[in-house]
Design a protein around this nucleic acid. Structure first.
Lengths: 181, 181
DNA sequence: TACGTTACCGAACATATTGTTTGATTTTAT
DNA sequence: ATAAAATCAAACAATATGTTCGGTAACGTA
């Protein structure tokens, strides 16, 4: 990838996240992003077709980081100990979320949060499917996945909004205690 | 309330829901709503400041119906039997949702669904708070409320998207079996 | 029925934002 | 050094928004 493209892309992301800290997503115009990023109008549209696509790209970047289970990086936050596979994995993810909380909080603050949540739940469904065997329930598989992704994403959103008064480990504890593993 | 206002308001709602059946929320313009409702431009803005406010009003109408626990109407769908208070209440709500599924499905189909869900979860939090004593958990109250509203709203959304292959009673069963009442 | 009030109409308007195009200019990769 | 490609600035059409206005029709009330 061309250096210029990288620089532009990063400039746009930074401008966008900076604006998100002080304005609602829907009130941010493409023009403002352009001005803040200090790039030409046509350059923006060469990178992203719409503001929505920009948001989607930003979310994707975040999630690829959070859900990446690169074994080399696993050690950083892994306090799995004697926990079940799911519980350890969730703790790991919560730590990643904690690290990116500033950025995520500003996204979650307004309508953009909904798109974030949609993506989040999608990734969670994929994740939970791998650990379905740990779940004891008569309900249809899809029901269980929606149930888990819905409850986890929603509690995480609350957790981050609370200035993270709780530790990642605590949240994982509360969550898994609900589903009798 | 003036008869004309009622008629206009209903006309707008009908036009809006009709449009939602064939178009995404964000692609619907105020002009289209005006044309479909067959009213003047200024009339629309006399009723709603924005398209978003219209959506909010529509959702409010729906929820006031679904969550109304007018004792006189309780009988219609109440198969409570020996169930816990919460389970009976949820079953009741699921029946109401089932009755309005057409309208709700078209709202849930696109971005408008997110606003619907936000409202839905708010109502659910208020509801669950009344039944907290039935929940056994060490987690903070707010955690529990977010957990329950998140999982219930998300499973309901899935349920309605599945052309409601399951009965309200079944969904309530699956849901309450998760939280050991 | 007559009255004053209110809602509606519809057309025009200013405004803002979007997304595209152009051709010149700079930077990059090799 | 050179060809490719990314950026820039400026202008552009197209679209949607929200407001204003005087005139008309419907309403509630006495």
């Amino acid at each position: 990838m061309d250096r210029r493209q990288q620089k532009t892309r990063i400039a746009i992301f930074q401008a966008f996240t900076k604006l998100l800290e002080s304005k609602r997503y829907s009130n941010i115009t493409v023009q403002e992003i352009i001005d803040e990023a200090n790039i030409g109008r046509s350059t923006f549209y060469a990178h992203f077709e719409t503001k929505d696509e920009l948001l989607r790209a930003l979310c994707s970047d975040i999630f690829q980081h959070i859900f990446s289970d690169n074994p080399a990086n696993e050690g950083t936050h892994d306090f799995s100990g004697a926990d079940s596979g799911l519980k350890a994995k969730l703790t790991h993810i919560l730590h990643h979320l904690y690290d990116s909380r500033r950025e995520i909080q500003s996204i979650l603050n307004c309508e953009s949060g909904e798109l974030f949540m949609v993506h989040f739940k999608e990734y969670l469904c994929v994740l939970f499917e791998k650990y379905l065997f740990e779940i004891k329930s008569q309900a249809p598989k899809e029901f269980i996945l929606k149930y888990l992704s819905g409850s986890f994403s929603e509690t995480v959103k609350w957790w981050l909004s609370e200035k993270t008064k709780y530790q990642p480990r605590e949240i994982a504890e509360y969550f898994t205690s609900f589903i009798s593993l």
